[in-house]
Structures are given as C-alpha cells and as structure tokens.
Design a protein around this nucleic acid. Structure first.
Lengths: 170, 170
DNA sequence: CTGTATCCTTAAAGATACTG
DNA sequence: CAGTATCTTTAAGGATACAG
C-alpha cells in the first residue's frame, strides 16, 4: 500500500505496521524469507519485481529491524530478525484466508508442529498441545497431489532441502 | 500495495489475498468495520481518505465478498460477511505486531474471551479455554490510562456503545 | 551478485464541485 | 448521505545500462 501519507497522522498501531509491511511486494518478500529464500537475485527471479523496487523494500525492512543484511562471501544474505519472525502469524493467516475464500483449491502446503508431529489448525493452534507454535516450531510439507505442479523456483528449492521453517540450511 | 500487476501471475494464495486487502487503506477500513464503523461518511472522517479512494476500496471489498452493502433508511451500512470476519486474525496479528515492535507503548485495547472473561494472548489463544476465539467471541476494552487520550471519532463512539465485537448495535 | 542511476510511462491519490 | 465526475499533481513502477 504505497505508504505513509496519511497513515502516520493516525496514532493507530496498525497504520504504523502498514508503513513497514503494507507496501506492494513487501509481504511476498517476507513470505519468501520465511520459506528460506535469502538472496537478492532469488527474490528478483521469484517475485518478478524490478530491481529498484526490491532494493527499496529490502531497505525499508532492514531499517525497520525486520530483516538483517549478512555479508556471506561475495554475496549478501537477508535473514529475518526476531521481530521479522513475529510477522509469521500475519503472513500465515492472510495466506490461509486466501486459500479458504478466494479459491476452490486445497492448501498448497501443510504446517505441522515439529515437536509433536501434529498439523496445526487454520487458527494456528496445535490441537494436541493446546498452544500456538511460533514459526521456529513448525515444519512444512507440500499438500498431496501438488508436487507435480511445483516449479523449480527458489522457494521450491529452499523447501526441498529443509522442511523445518527457519532452521539453518545444510 | 497498489494491486494486481504481477501479483496475479503468481499462483500463490497470499498474492491473491493481497489483491483484495493489500491496497492502501483497505486494512484500515476493515479494522474500523471490526470496531463497529458502518457508514461511508464515518470512514471518510475517521481515516482521512479521499472519497474516490474510499469508494474504490469499498467496491473491491464488496465484489470480493468481504463486505456487504445494506440499505438502511436513507443511508447505507457496510457489514462484514463471514469471509470478512475471517480476516480478523490478520488485522489482529498485524496490529499487535505494530504495538510490540514499532512503539514503546502498551496496547491501546485489550481483547477478552467473552464466554470465560479471560484476556487472550498475542497469539490469539485463550489460555483458560485452550482455543483461539473468533472475532464474534471477543469483547474489547480500552487499556488503563488511555481513556483520556481517546478522541471522539467514529471508532471510539462505536466502542463506547457496545463492547462485544460484531454484535448488533442497540 | 548486489546494487545505483536514469529515463520514461502509467497509475494512484487528493481536491473540488456536483447529483440522486 | 453516498456516491460520481473531472482535473491536477505526485508518486510509483518497469526497463535498461552501468558500477563496486
């Protein structure tokens, strides 16, 4: 939501949050980060966004403390901070909402509570433990019958090599 | 996030959801709806958005089945549909994220599980019942020490006359 | 590989006046 | 009260070429 003007005037917390994550592409960038995408070039390819816009969004997220820039060899890795990881419920709930109300499809991925192996509900609740796991306590797997459709994009590649969300890549 | 171009190309559910609720102002409009604001003029005054933009956003939300237009006397009421109510976890989690990570303030409002009177956690969980209540099962109250600061805007007025979320006004 | 810098085109937003 | 219609301004986005 192309930011600020008017939002800041509101004392409201939601408005302030939207100044950080409410712009176009931002939530999709973060979703990729949750799925293990870390490099500028991968985001560029996967999201089909222009370089200038991607630079701008990453700058905003780094400035807001949602992502951290980590030099890695001759490359750069963008990693979620703790504040960034706390955005998971928002990404999760909005994505699930899209699945339930905007398509006839079943979920594309299924999220399980890693410590007990139980799938979480749409509300985020683990029915066995009675808790709402954080993103670090979740694992992901593709829903049945969807594997064939998946392309070889950076998200698919990242998820194939590790199923636990936000664990370090091998 | 000024919509569509590029989003639709992605099969991703999050992208589709963002085409409906990802544009500027949309989530703030919905937040007001959750708090009981129903009229075009009240949204216009409270959000300080231009008429044209508000019309456009409401049209998008009605077309997507998030809001319904109800003629009421010589006026019109915009009411959340069931699909609209399901957006509560997104609005709630993003708002809470803003409170926790973008300000030094305490929450402005506190949400309680109506049937048991227990405050819900940031995750949405009711610690006493072990469930994640829907928005219809919640009540709201202002956090201590904030009453003085509140202005006489449509949200404040709506919340003063009824504390249960989404129940019919008297 | 990760950006910067420019240019260009389109689209979004505000203001205002007007209508059923 | 709830929009519509027009106009003007501004901003955002894409494309491309280039640099550290």
């Amino acid at each position: 939501m192309a930011l600020g003007t008017g939002y800041d005037a509101q004392g409201c917390f939601l408005a302030r949050a939207l100044e950080v994550v409410g712009e176009r592409w931002t939530l999709l960038i973060l979703r990729d980060c949750f799925y293990g995408v870390r490099h500028f070039s991968d985001l560029l390819a996967h999201l089909d966004v222009s370089r200038g816009v991607l630079t701008d969004r990453l700058d905003t997220l780094v400035d807001a403390g949602v992502l951290e820039r980590h030099p890695a060899g001759r490359s750069v890795e963008y990693l979620l901070t703790e504040a960034g990881e706390d955005l998971w419920p928002t990404v999760f709930s909005l994505s699930r909402w899209g699945e339930r109300h905007l398509t006839a499809d079943h979920p594309g991925r299924i999220f399980g509570h890693a410590v007990c192996g139980t799938d979480i509900e749409d509300s985020g609740l683990c029915p066995r433990c009675g808790t709402v796991p954080t993103v670090r306590e979740l694992d992901v797997r593709p829903a049945p019958g969807r594997n064939a459709r998946r392309r070889e994009d950076p998200v698919a590649i990242a998820l194939r090599t590790r199923h636990r969300m936000l664990d370090p890549l091998p």
